[in-house]
C-alpha cells in the first residue's frame, strides 16, 4: 500500500496542472478585475522604464553600457519575476495561507507541504503584466546587442531565467518562514525586495562597494541579471569564468533555496496553527 501511495514525478506534474486549471478558472470568474490589474502592473513598470530611458538618453553610454544593453539587463528582472509569480505565488502569499487556515488543510493531505503551497497559487495577472514588459524589452534589445542566439546561448539563457526565478523565490521564502511564529514580515519583505530590485535595474559597476556586496552576497540579484548580462553582452569583465557564468545563476539559486528550505522546515516544527 505504501508504494502505491508514493507519488511519482508524472503524477505530481499532472496534479500541479490540475491545480493550475482550477486557478485559471477562478481567475476567469473575475476576468475584468484581473485584466485591469494586469494592465495596471504593465503601466506601472513601463513608467519606470521610460524614466530610466529619459535619464539615460542624454548619454551615449555610461561606464561602457549603452541604452540597449541597459534595457537588456533590465529585461531579466521582468522575465524571471513573471515566471516567479506564475510558479511560486504561493510562497509570496504564504502569510495569508497561514492566517486563513489553508495551511492546516494542506497538512491533512498526503502530499509535501511546500509542493501544495506552490501548486495552489499562480498569479496570472502579475505574470502577464511583468511578462509583457520583459518580452517587449527582450524583443527590442535581443537583436541589437550583438548576441548570437545559437543553441549554446539559448540554453544558457533558459538556465539564467530559471535560476533567477528560484533566487527570487528563495528571498520571498525567507519571510514566509517567520509566519510559522505568527510574525508577519510581508511589509518589511516588500520594502527590502523591491528596493534591492530597483538597484539591480542598473549595472552593478555603477555602485559603490557596499551595495555591490549586498547585491552579490546578501540579496543575490547580481546573479539574476548582472553577471549573466556580462556574459551575453561580451563585457570585458567576463574573462575569468567565461562560458560558465550563466550557470552560476541556477547554482546560486539551488544553494540559496536549500538553505532557506532548511530554515523553513525548522519553522514548521514551531507551527502552532491559528485559533478559530
Amino acid at each position: 500500500m505504501d508504494k502505491q501511495k508514493m507519488f511519482t514525478i508524472p503524477e505530481l506534474t499532472k496534479l500541479f496542472f490540475v491545480h493550475t486549471k482550477l486557478i485559471a478558472k477562478t481567475t476567469l470568474e473575475y476576468k475584468f478585475h484581473r485584466s485591469l490589474i494586469s494592465v495596471a502592473i504593465f503601466c506601472r513598470e513601463m513608467i519606470s522604464i521610460v524614466t530610466m530611458y529619459l535619464i539615460m538618453i542624454r548619454f551615449v553610454s555610461i561606464k561602457g553600457w549603452d541604452m540597449n544593453e541597459m534595457l537588456f539587463l533590465y529585461s531579466f528582472l521582468f522575465i524571471s519575476y513573471s515566471l516567479f509569480v506564475f510558479v511560486f505565488a504561493g510562497i509570496r502569499d504564504f502569510d495569508a495561507m497561514v492566517q486563513s487556515g489553508e495551511l492546516d488543510r494542506f497538512l491533512l493531505r498526503p502530499l509535501g507541504l511546500i509542493y501544495q503551497v506552490i501548486a495552489s497559487r499562480a498569479d496570472f495577472s502579475a505574470t502577464l503584466g511583468h511578462g509583457a514588459v520583459g518580452v517587449i524589452l527582450l524583443i527590442k534589445t535581443a537583436g541589437s546587442v550583438g548576441i548570437e542566439w545559437n543553441l549554446r546561448n539559448t540554453l544558457a539563457y533558459i538556465a539564467v531565467i530559471l535560476g533567477g526565478t528560484v533566487i527570487q523565490a528563495s528571498l520571498f521564502m525567507v519571510s514566509s518562514c517567520f509566519s510559522f511564529w505568527t510574525v508577519n514580515t510581508t511589509n518589511l519583505r516588500n520594502l527590502v525586495f523591491f528596493n534591492a530590485r530597483r538597484f539591480a535595474a542598473y549595472p552593478l559597476s555603477f555602485y559603490p562597494g557596499v551595495i555591490r556586496y549586498l547585491l552579490i552576497f546578501l540579496l543575490p540579484f547580481a546573479f539574476v541579471n548582472y553577471f549573466p548580462s556580462l556574459y551575453f553582452l561580451n563585457k570585458p569583465e567576463v574573462s575569468i569564468l567565461g562560458g560558465w557564468i550563466p550557470y552560476l545563476t541556477p547554482v546560486v539559486g539551488a544553494v540559496l533555496f536549500f538553505l532557506v528550505y532548511t530554515f523553513w522546515k525548522f519553522g514548521l516544527k514551531h507551527y502552532s496553527s491559528v485559533g478559530n
Binding site: 502505491q4 501511495k5 507519488f7 503524477e11 499532472k14 496534479l15 490540475v18 491545480h19 482550477l22 493531505r109 498526503p110 502530499l111
Partner: peptide
C-alpha cells in the same frame, strides 16, 4: 476532481 488526484 482535484481530490481524486490528491488521493490517487
Amino acid at each position: 476532481d482535484l481530490l481524486r488526484y490528491v488521493y490517487k
